[in-house]
Write a protein that binds this DNA or RNA. Structure first.
Lengths: 82, 82
DNA sequence: AGATATTTGTTCGTATGTATC
DNA sequence: GGATACATACGAACAAATATC
């Protein structure tokens, strides 16, 4: 169970927990970070989970997202298509 | 066609219709209840159909689901494996 | 063996509505 | 009014197992 702080948005608190797990190495590159997993572990709504993931992706660039597949720990892979 | 009520979620209204059919005997034990069938008959999205089925299974225990096969009317069969 | 159809499982993208602060 | 957070509901893509032909 997480004990929510009142002065920080939940999406941000969740993102911080995940960020720490990534930076500590607990979450290895390539690991799946699905919205469902966040919803279940933290007991949050999907919108909230998405906001956490968006922040990790767009602000911290610790993960990348593949539509219909999921979000994965690590830097955005280059699209090396010709 | 179903006339949706505004004050009850669609997934719940669909589940209620199915529940009545099961309890009235219209749907016999063993009958397949596929997501596609619900989508077509009620004009709902797959997610919504899945939520109706999940409720009938997990809350009412009127059906059981076999992955890659479908959901069937009746109690969850015992796994009689040795 | 192989192709096809059916069916569930999982996942993201988007939008709307309600309520609260 | 804006940000947060919940639930609902549409769509879409892909995987995997099963059944049939």
């Amino acid at each position: 169970m997480i004990e929510w702080r009142e002065d920080v948005p939940r999406w941000r608190q969740v993102a911080n927990v995940i960020r720490r797990r990534i930076e500590s190495g607990e979450y290895r590159p390539g690991r799946l970070l699905s919205e469902n997993a966040l919803m279940q572990e933290f007991g949050i709504a999907r919108n909230t989970a998405r906001k956490s993931i968006a922040w990790l992706r767009e602000e911290k660039r610790l993960i990348y997202t593949r539509p219909n597949l999921g979000s994965f720990v690590g830097p955005e892979p280059e699209d090396d298509e010709e």
